[in-house]
Computed example of a mutant assay.
Amino acid sequence: MEVIVVSDATEIGGIAADAISALLERKPDAVLGLATGSSPVAVYDELARRCDAGRVSFRQARGFILDEYVGLPAEHPQRYRNVIDAAFVNRVDFGPGAVDGPDGTAADLPAACAAYEDAIRAAGGVNLQILGIGTDGHIAFNEPGSSLASRTRIKTLTRQTRTDNARFFGDDLDAVPTHCLTQGLATILDARHVILLATGRHKAEAVHHLVEGAVSAMWPATILQHHPHVTVLLDDAAARRLQLVDYYRETYRAKPDWQGI
């Protein structure tokens, strides 16, 4: 696990966009794992700018969304398919149907989850997965207590997660769905490279457990300690609880330019 601490979200966005651009340059048909929420916004903004400038193209690429609310109508603005389209997909040059997501409107939710897993496998697996992290350490919607071997499935959201997400629903907690479909922790671990983004003091406790804590289902993101290629991009506030933060800074300063992330 590589930990990179920089000044702000804009710098984080640039580093992650560099990695994605480099991947697409050497593998134009790469498969990207796309997260929603506030953490990846700077990445998507930077990639959209580069696409407009002709510096990167997604024409041959595929994308898979991490998770989806259950029960929101297809036209709801907070349905994650609509969120990712507005935040990223419609701003770059993905081909028609190139981005897929779990179907939270399906009549048979277990079958929808199995079909989604099959679609990822059929695409050759995810080359680079973008992740955020919840204040309770969840990644995707794998809440505390999630099986470390879990695959895409239906989950009940914790009250903490629903409270954190209420800002997207007019601060109305009752409007936030109680269930979701989410890639499982084992599904996420199948990605060849994981880039996790975190900013702000409210993420510091979760980041501390992710990077320096024990692997535990109570802090689901800690399973990433078992992944061979994880990059954690943090601002100063999110890194404030890390005991080895000076070492992480020194390591990044000394890193050869050719190595990338």
Rank of each mutant, 00 (worst) to 15 (best):
V56I: 10
A206T: 00
D257Y: 03
G37D: 06
D52K: 14
A112V: 11
Y116L: 04
H209A: 14
L197D: 07
F58D: 09
E212H: 07
T105H: 07
Y247P: 00
A112K: 07
P110R: 13
S7Q: 14
L131I: 06
K155R: 15
R201S: 15
L157Y: 00
G200R: 01
D18P: 06
G137C: 04
A221M: 07
G124K: 00
N82C: 02
Q259R: 13
A61K: 06
G95D: 04
L197S: 10
A30P: 08
A191I: 02
T105C: 13
Q78I: 01
K27Y: 12
T163V: 10
T105D: 10
V215S: 08
A238F: 04
I130A: 01
G170T: 01
T199I: 01
P28G: 08
I65F: 08
D190A: 15
I261L: 15
V43K: 00
V3P: 01
D45P: 04
D100E: 15
F64N: 02
A122W: 01
A106R: 03
A191P: 05
I223W: 05
E212T: 03
R91C: 04
K255T: 12
T161A: 09
V176H: 03
A114W: 07
L181Y: 00
I12E: 05
D52R: 14
I154F: 07
V215L: 07
E250T: 13
L196T: 03
H226A: 14
V70M: 03
N165D: 11
A175W: 11
V83L: 10
L210W: 01
P177C: 09
R249E: 05
D171Y: 15
A22L: 04
I65R: 14
A19T: 01
R249D: 09
D235K: 02
A22H: 02
E46C: 11
L72F: 01
M218V: 12
G97L: 08
T178G: 14
